[in-house]
Computed example of a mutant assay.
Amino acid sequence: MQVKQSIWLVKCFLNYLRHDKTEVNVLFDILSIFLLHSRIDFTFLKEFYIIEVAEGYPPNMKRALLLHFLNLFQSKQLGHDHLVVVMQMLILPMLAHAFQNGQSWEVVDPGIIKTIVDKLLDQPEEVSAEYDEPLRIELLQLATLLLKYLQNDLVQHRKELIKFGWNHLKREDSASKQWAFVNVCHFLEAYQAPEKNYTSGFCCTSQNLPAGK
């Protein structure tokens, strides 16, 4: 009976959210269930986030959820493991669906892009050094998603984006390094290098940059 309490509570919250989509805090809080080891099958919850939220919420609600996520990230109200689950289950699927279905600018505007670049991706070394590998991977996937669909709107952020990807290429974490290769490849596909030695030149330059620059 105690084991089943979690699934009953989750189903109660889902029924509540289906009647009131404005309760964004509840939507984020429920995801904490994935931080616990359990033999309960929560596939129905994953489907709720992928189908009903990421695909079914209107653009204005998706925008509200994205802004709420950015506030939570900057305020450090959630642990890194919780942020990882939020990005995996909610933010990345939601943005991917929005970008693929012509909702880009209804969900993401230049101000939000700047916040993502400045506050999530282009952090000083002393801040980013605290991120564990799973969070780094999710941030790399976020940056890659933006490069794939919003390349024309990221031109002014090219320096920060390539530095973000390149710095991860130099890390020892094997998994995040693999995602960094994908990220840098999307960057080079989006912004054709004017010179053959562009990447090698950037490598030499980036090695001489002070931390956080």
Rank of each mutant, 00 (worst) to 15 (best):
Q2Y: 06
Q2G: 09
V3F: 04
Q5V: 09
I7H: 02
L9R: 00
K11C: 03
K11Q: 02
C12A: 06
N15D: 10
N15A: 11
R18G: 00
R18V: 00
H19W: 09
D20T: 06
K21H: 10
K21W: 01
K21M: 11
N25D: 13
L27E: 02
I30G: 03
S32N: 09
F34Q: 01
F34Y: 01
S38T: 14
S38C: 11
R39T: 06
R39A: 03
D41G: 04
F42Q: 02
K46W: 02
F48D: 00
V53W: 01
A54R: 03
E55Q: 13
G56D: 02
Y57K: 08
Y57D: 13
P59D: 00
N60E: 06
N60P: 00
M61F: 09
M61D: 13
K62N: 05
K62Q: 11
A64W: 05
L65P: 11
L65G: 08
L66M: 09
L72M: 11
K76Q: 12
L78M: 02
G79Y: 08
D81V: 05
D81K: 15
L83D: 00
V84L: 07
Q88S: 12
L92K: 10
P93S: 01
P93G: 05
P93W: 10
A96P: 02
F99Y: 03
G102T: 02
G102V: 04
S104Q: 04
S104G: 04
V107A: 05
P110N: 11
P110M: 07
I112Y: 01
K114Q: 08
V117G: 06
D118M: 08
K119H: 08
L121N: 05
L121E: 04
D122N: 15
D122C: 06
Q123H: 09
E126T: 09
E126V: 13
V127F: 07
D132E: 14
L139E: 09
L139W: 07
L139F: 07
Q141S: 06
Q141W: 05
Q141F: 02
L145E: 06
L146D: 12
L150G: 13
N152M: 07
K159F: 10
K159C: 10
E160K: 12
R171T: 14
E172L: 14
E172S: 15
S176Y: 01
K177P: 06
Q178K: 11
W179P: 13
A180R: 14
A180M: 01
F181N: 05
N183Y: 07
V184C: 11
H186A: 10
L188A: 05
A190T: 14
Y191L: 13
Q192L: 13
A193T: 15
Y198F: 12
F202A: 14
Q207E: 15
N208R: 15
L209R: 09
P210I: 14
P210N: 11
G212A: 15
